[in-house]
């Protein structure tokens, strides 16, 4: 008896463990997610009630008196509860579902809103912002949206099928090679949430996450200006050495740091990498130790990713590089 009690106590813990709020579809902070949330509860409660009713009928059919059983097996009951009731419920659900689909997935956003292009690559997210003034700037692994405005995400990919899923914001939408899919999202509350690639795209698929940051509408323009600015110049000696190493070791071949000679497009843009909430597509914390670990050992963190391991630096050089990158706020 004691072991079953312990086992059953463990179960709720397992369930709760999967419920961290930042990636939970049950804590919507976006318009699309809110509609999915209401649909979810309608169907869950409705389904639950119908399930309870069916269970009840089953119990009556097995243990009930002959009167109840006679009523249950009447022809009217079969047609009424077996044909008309489901037909009515399903029709109602169809109507509600169509209404939601029309609203959430395909609403077009006003022309003033920023266009964000997200390209899934193996295994990170290339994010490009284009604002009303026509300015275009590139970032990686983080999507910043203004609260209350509808933003169109143009989803593409350059290699295999990925899927963009920010559970707190909206539903999933695939990124298919050769095709651009549009997803409209509207954040309703400011805050940080987490998203995930939702279509198997290779070995490191599980390590391909991203962060969504919703800014209050008046702060968004300010953030965009900050992001469009070139990289912060290094000020300490360590950071200067780090920048020198960064440029001399050929990091600019793949990574761009606007404002320096580094203009590579093969890998993530690092212009403001220091201010991101995470590294490596939300697999590592954003701190100096993680930078060092990634530079030296990224093939063990994310096997077969596009960056070769750089074991060519001394400890002091790695320190300098990490300080420089961390300082690119």
């Amino acid at each position: 008896m004691r072991t079953t009690a312990r086992r059953s106590a463990a179960l709720p813990l397992l369930v709760i463990g999967g419920c961290s709020v930042e990636q939970s579809a049950l804590h919507p902070t976006g318009a699309g997610a809110e509609q999915i949330y209401s649909l979810f509860w309608v169907m869950t409660i409705g389904g639950g009630l119908i399930f309870a009713a069916v269970l009840l009928c089953t119990l009556w059919a097995i243990y009930g008196g002959s009167g109840i059983r006679r009523t249950l097996s009447a022809e009217g009951m079969i047609y009424g509860a077996g044909v008309f009731f489901p037909a009515a419920v399903l029709s109602a659900l169809l109507g509600y579902g169509l209404y939601l689909m029309q609203e959430s997935a395909f609403a077009s956003s006003p022309t003033g809103a920023p266009q964000i292009a997200v390209s899934g690559e193996m295994w990170w997210w290339r994010v490009q912002y284009r604002d009303a003034q026509g300015r275009s700037l590139e970032s990686a692994n983080e999507v910043h949206v203004p609260v209350g405005e509808t933003v169109n995400l143009a989803l593409t990919t350059k290699d295999v099928i990925h899927s963009f899923w920010a559970p707190q914001l909206a539903g999933k939408l695939d990124m298919i090679p050769g095709r651009t899919n549009m997803l409209s999202v509207t954040a309703t509350k400011p805050g940080i949430s987490r998203g995930q690639c939702a279509e198997y795209c290779g070995g490191a698929h599980a390590l391909m996450s991203f962060v969504v940051v919703a800014h209050p509408a008046d702060e968004y323009a300010q953030w965009l200006d900050g992001e469009a600015a070139p990289a912060k110049a290094p000020d300490t000696e360590r950071e200067k050495l780090g920048q020198d190493l960064f440029l001399r070791s050929g990091c600019g071949a793949c990574h761009a740091v606007r404002g320096t000679a580094a203009a590579g497009t093969i890998g993530p843009d690092l212009t403001h990498v220091g201010s991101r909430k995470s590294l490596g597509a939300a697999t590592l914390n954003n701190d100096e130790a993680s930078f060092k670990r990634w530079i030296v050992d990224n093939q063990h963190i994310k096997p077969e990713n596009g960056m070769p391991p750089y074991r060519i630096f001394t400890e002091a050089e790695l320190d300098a590089l990490a300080a420089y990158l961390d300082g690119l706020a």
């Binding site: 070791s249 050929g250 600019g252 071949a253 093969i266 596009g306």
Partner: peptide, 10 residues
């Protein structure tokens, strides 16, 4: 397109 970095960077 082929993830080949420019040689001149190194």
């Amino acid at each position: 397109k082929q993830e080949v970095a420019p040689c001149s960077s190194c």
